[in-house]
């Protein structure tokens, strides 16, 4: 109940402040891991917050987790921007940060980046990150999901600081890549050896005698009858932007990746 009230208070304050100018220079007013819905134990929240603080300091970029009950009448992306601005998240003058916000009622999520976060968390990078985090969230393994998010974010920031942010065109050897590469290797090897083996065999029985035709086909009857018609409707894919890399930054300075978990 206490946490529920806190969540409502957070929402109320947020609603009031969404329309206000951004207070960019002040220090953040909430812990980096802020669970207003009470889905984490206090120990878990504390441990995650400690790690988030350490990573943020190490890479000069806030790594934030915010959990709320709902986003009221705001869409999740607007709400996330509001939280980020209202509570002065972000590291340094650039207010660099990445924020994962969960809205529990609609099971919506938004992963937003700002400042240097936009460099480290490209559109492709955000998509890849959430592919690894969402399986935990779907199983309601909140601690596991946030823990993975923190570690991956730290990894992304380290790569970005090294000048190689995770983006389309950057090689990354993950478990699915290894598995599918092995499968592709076996298939390729089977094709190659089958072709080579086929070249060793040239004696095959003929099933037709087209070389010995005397004259053309005497076609005596031809009839084509319509039988039936099938219609299949398939929803077209929305299109995720294809093979282009980089980060799509809005005029607000944020970039987003949102959806359901």
């Amino acid at each position: 109940m206490k946490k529920r009230l806190a969540s409502l208070a957070l929402l109320l304050i947020l609603c009031l402040l969404l329309a206000l100018p951004v207070m960019a220079d002040s220090a953040r007013e909430l812990p980096l891991v802020c669970d207003a819905s009470g889905i984490l134990t206090e120990e878990q929240a504390e441990e995650l917050n400690t790690r988030a603080e350490a990573y943020s300091r190490q890479y000069s970029c806030d790594i934030i987790v915010v959990v709320v009950d709902d986003t009221d009448f705001y869409d999740v992306e607007t709400f996330t921007e509001g939280v980020y601005n209202k509570y002065n998240f972000g590291w340094g003058p650039e207010r660099s940060g990445v924020i994962l916000l969960l809205s529990m009622e609609e099971r919506d999520y938004d992963l937003a980046a700002y400042g240097f976060g936009n460099t480290a968390f490209t559109d492709f990078g955000k998509d890849q990150l959430m592919k690894e985090v969402k399986p935990y969230l779907r199983k309601n393994d909140w601690y596991g999901g946030f823990s993975k998010y923190l570690d991956l974010s730290a990894d992304y920031l380290r790569r970005a600081r090294d000048g190689k942010p995770v983006d389309r065109g950057l090689f990354r050897l993950s478990a699915p890549v290894v598995i599918w590469s092995l499968v592709a290797g076996v298939i390729f090897a089977l094709i190659v050896t089958t072709v080579l083996k086929a070249r060793m065999k040239s004696a095959v029985l003929q099933t037709r005698a087209d070389d010995y035709l005397s004259g053309d086909l005497r076609l005596e009857y031809a009839d084509d009858r319509f039988l039936s018609k099938d219609v299949v409707r398939v929803r077209r894919s929305e299109g995720s932007g294809g093979g282009r890399g980089g980060t799509s930054i809005r005029s607000s300075g944020f970039s987003h990746h949102s959806g359901k978990f």
Binding site: E220, Y221, L227, V232
Partner: peptide, 11 residues
């Protein structure tokens, strides 16, 4: 949309 036909030929 897939239309199905039965085609008979003699020759």
């Amino acid at each position: 949309e897939t239309s199905h036909f039965q085609c008979e030929r003699r020759g």
